[in-house]
Amino acid sequence: MTRIVSGTAKGRTLKVPANGTRPTSDRVREALFSRLDHLGYVTDCEVLDLYAGSGALGLEAASRGASFVQLVEHAKGAVNAIRENSRTLGLDVVVDNAKVETWLAREPNRRFDLVFLDPPYALGEEDLARALQLLTPHLEHDAMVIVERSSRSPEPTWPAQLEREDERSWGDTRAWSAVVRPATTKVEA
């Protein structure tokens, strides 16, 4: 059973699609969000949840006070579950039924402070690297990106704009975080 860990919807159960998704466990979400809350990356932040699945990460962010939450998921059954969860929990989120690469290839209409990528474990490393590259125009100058994969997966190939910040493991789950590299300023002679 998947539940919201904290915030306005704390303890409420999430509907999870019958197949095709692998919701982030309550334990992993609790650890991730505890750290993110401590770093100031949830409350009043704009959050993007890619490969959203059941929507557990994005809905957790909304419950904890994110100012805007955008979820992107391709599987229609998962999109329906996210929309039902949003209504049932009274959490205001935006859900797009789209392939992640297609959605990211669009011209950004907003920039995000926090981004979750929790792709299917079968997604190839090259596809993940492409999604991370396409993501960069959608990021705020101090954004954090979290990638969740199998503990057997290699570290993602980060685009030049992102710098790995941390790596954590919980059983079969590994999460990497990266932050936008600080802009370098030219010093005139």
Score class of each variant (00 low, 15 high):
92 D>T: 12
17 P>D: 01
40 G>L: 04
76 K>Y: 15
169 S>W: 10
17 P>L: 01
45 C>W: 10
4 I>M: 02
1 M>Y: 12
82 I>E: 10
113 D>Q: 12
179 V>W: 15
42 V>Q: 02
110 R>Y: 13
20 G>D: 00
39 L>T: 00
63 S>H: 03
99 K>R: 14
24 T>N: 02
179 V>F: 14
49 D>A: 07
144 M>R: 12
61 A>V: 02
108 P>L: 06
85 N>C: 03
147 V>W: 14
169 S>D: 06
35 R>W: 01
11 G>N: 12
25 S>R: 05
31 A>D: 01
118 D>W: 07
40 G>E: 02
77 G>H: 15
32 L>G: 00
154 P>W: 01
146 I>N: 06
75 A>W: 09
64 R>M: 05
169 S>T: 12
120 P>A: 01
172 D>N: 11
27 R>L: 06
90 G>M: 01
139 L>M: 14
98 A>E: 14
48 L>F: 15
42 V>Y: 01
167 E>S: 14
96 D>K: 14
76 K>W: 15
186 K>R: 11
174 R>C: 07
47 V>L: 05
30 E>P: 03
6 S>L: 04
88 T>W: 08
152 R>Y: 08
173 T>L: 06
129 A>S: 07
81 A>M: 05
41 Y>I: 00
179 V>G: 12
87 R>V: 08
173 T>V: 08
181 R>D: 07
126 E>D: 11
153 S>V: 02
181 R>K: 13
167 E>C: 13
113 D>P: 10
143 A>L: 11
97 N>D: 13
77 G>V: 14
4 I>W: 04
63 S>R: 00
114 L>T: 10
176 W>N: 11
163 E>A: 13
149 R>I: 00
24 T>M: 04
188 E>I: 05
49 D>R: 04
166 D>V: 04
102 T>E: 15
86 S>A: 11
166 D>K: 06
